[in-house]
């Protein structure tokens, strides 16, 4: 099965063509939030280099969030456009699950973190069981302090990945993450493809029309900040 996958949910933009689990071509840039200008030329380069046409693709996959509002929309819209009218399945992949996939087979808790600004991260927690990623909590936005409390309570070694690694490591008071290669910290469309294949095999693929962005917003942060601002005014 030929899978075209992409991730544009943060500063990294990544496009991959995989045959099942095997990457055939990967194109990743980390050059600022310019996905609206770079993503489609990257798709074109990946397809041309491998002598593949869009019609050959069996499964379209996309990291659908959480992440940057514009980045998420660009990725989802691009996949919708490529798949439109082709009756081919699409897989909506959590950005966090794909990030966690980078670190398989880490023994312990895999803890992807994306910088959601103002002391918050987008996060989920995963285990690896028999080589397969297993989700422990749903995708959420939470403060770095809350994340540290939760990881401390679980009491297991953990590894971080994602663009929030630095802000999270700096924000933790006592916990120290396990060392992993920084090469694995960034979004990779190959990981998106792996998650997409799993979703497809589990019958979770959708039509291009049903592919939707997932925005995790910060109602709690908003509430807390409004309270804090009111206090300072008083």
């Amino acid at each position: 099965m030929l899978i075209l996958s992409l991730d544009s949910t943060a500063v990294v933009g990544s496009v991959a063509l995989c045959r099942d689990d095997t990457p055939l071509a990967v194109f990743t840039v980390k050059n600022g939030n310019t996905h609206s200008e770079t993503l489609l030329p990257m798709v074109e380069a990946v397809l041309n280099t491998t002598n593949t046409s869009v019609a050959d693709i069996d499964l379209f996959a996309c990291a659908v969030g959480p992440g940057s509002f514009t980045g998420v929309r660009i990725g989802v819209a691009t996949v919708k456009g490529l798949a439109f009218g082709r009756e081919k399945p699409c897989a909506a992949v959590s950005t966090l699950e794909a990030l966690a996939e980078n670190l398989v087979p880490f023994e312990g808790i895999i803890c992807p973190v994306m910088n959601a600004r103002r002391g918050q991260v987008y996060n989920a927690l995963f285990h690896v069981e028999n080589g397969v990623l297993t989700r422990l909590v749903p995708d959420r936005a939470l403060s770095i302090a809350e994340l540290e409390r939760e990881l401390a309570a679980r009491g297991e070694p953990f590894a971080l990945c994602g663009d929030g690694v630095d802000v999270t490591t700096a924000g933790f008071q006592t916990l120290v993450p396990s060392a992993v290669s920084p090469l694995l910290a960034d979004q990779s469309a190959v990981s998106v493809a792996k998650c997409a294949l799993r979703a497809y095999q589990n019958g979770e693929a959708v039509s291009d029309a049903a592919l939707s962005p997932v925005y995790l917003r910060l109602p709690q942060a908003e509430r807390e900040r409004l309270e804090r601002n009111n206090e300072t005014k008083e």
Binding site: V11, G32, N33, S68, F69, T70, G71, R117, R118, Y215, R217, L218, P219, A221, E222, R225, L226
Partner: peptide, 15 residues
């Protein structure tokens, strides 16, 4: 609030 800011891509502009 935060939700409104998010949906205009505010943080994207800052980067």
């Amino acid at each position: 609030g935060e939700d409104d800011l998010y949906s205009i891509g505010y943080d994207d502009y800052l980067t």
